[in-house]
């Protein structure tokens, strides 16, 4: 499972103890070194939609007020075993290609050229696993929790003959409300029944929630697993590191291929 329970409960414990003592947080100013900006690539191929979306930006200094510095005028190609697609810039820093034909186990190569430098990543089309149902479960009482909150469990039709990797995203009114990144593999999937995965976010009655399950490949999973580790606000106990994406040439980010399966639920 992607969520790092080891750290979670050690941090939970630390916080429990802190709450019983005199712990406090305050914002401090640090004189940080600024590294050279690096290209950040977010590229995802949705097999069902036959669409590749790419966003290019550059990293910024930590205290910079710019959330991102988008990169225009890149030349982007997507190569399948049989065809090469040109990815066009549809708005500043955002690129897209449509009508991409992809079947399981096809290998794609994404090539991006920016300012005479070339960046390349490979990814393989994963096996699709549909999201079958969303079950609502009442939460039992825990300290500091709203008693009317509920949790959802996603039921997945996992293929036991292959090793599968997943990511879950949550949306409300079209807005991504996921807390961090939730990725997991099928190591705990039962062989003879559907794979039941609890969703960590909680919801209130009358909420309308859209759950998007991405069946993805290992490289995508690895990258988002590492992102989950370093971005979890409770995981500041982890030795810092840079998540390793699948692009070469010191680019940050990833190129992932996934099947998306979406269900909507109105919380009762």
């Amino acid at each position: 499972m992607a969520t790092n329970f080891n750290n979670r409960f050690s941090i939970f414990l630390v916080f429990a103890i802190i709450s019983l003592s005199w712990g406090c947080e305050d914002v401090i100013e640090l004189d940080l070194k600024d590294a050279e900006p690096r290209l950040v690539i977010a590229a995802g191929l949705d097999v069902g939609l036959q669409t590749l979306d790419v966003q290019l930006s550059r990293s910024t200094p930590f205290y910079s007020l710019d959330s991102s510095s988008l990169v225009s005028d890149a030349q982007i190609e997507l190569r399948s075993p049989t065809k090469t697609y040109t990815v066009a810039e549809i708005e500043t820093g955002r690129y897209q290609a449509t009508q991409i034909e992809a079947v399981s186990n096809d290998s794609f190569t994404l090539v991006i050229r920016v300012s005479d430098k070339s960046y390349e990543a490979k990814a393989t089309v994963p096996t699709a696993a549909p999201l079958i149902d969303l079950e609502q479960i009442e939460l039992s009482d825990l300290p500091f929790r709203d008693p009317s909150a509920v949790r959802l469990t996603a039921l997945i039709e996992d293929d036991p003959t292959t090793k599968n990797y997943y990511r879950i995203q949550l949306f409300q009114s079209g807005e991504n409300i996921s807390e961090g990144f939730t990725v997991f593999d099928d190591v705990f999937a039962p062989i003879d029944t559907d794979f039941s995965v609890p969703i960590r976010e909680t919801f209130m009655p009358k909420d309308t929630v859209q759950v998007r399950l991405l069946s993805t490949n290992k490289a995508y999973y690895d990258y988002f697993y590492q992102l989950a580790l370093v971005t979890d606000p409770r995981s500041n106990d982890i030795t810092p590191f840079n998540p390793q994406g699948n692009f070469d040439n010191n680019a940050l980010g990833y190129f992932g291929i996934y099947h998306a399966s979406i269900l909507e639920k109105i919380i009762e």
């Binding site: 600024d34 550059r58 910024t60 990144f181 992102l227 971005t231 940050l252």
Partner: peptide, 20 residues
């Protein structure tokens, strides 16, 4: 001895720090 961030980027709204 610790590792402080030397930059940042965002993935789907989430701040990701860069370490050197």
């Amino acid at each position: 001895a610790v590792t402080f961030t030397t930059g940042k980027y965002f993935v789907e709204r989430e701040l990701v720090n860069i370490y050197s």
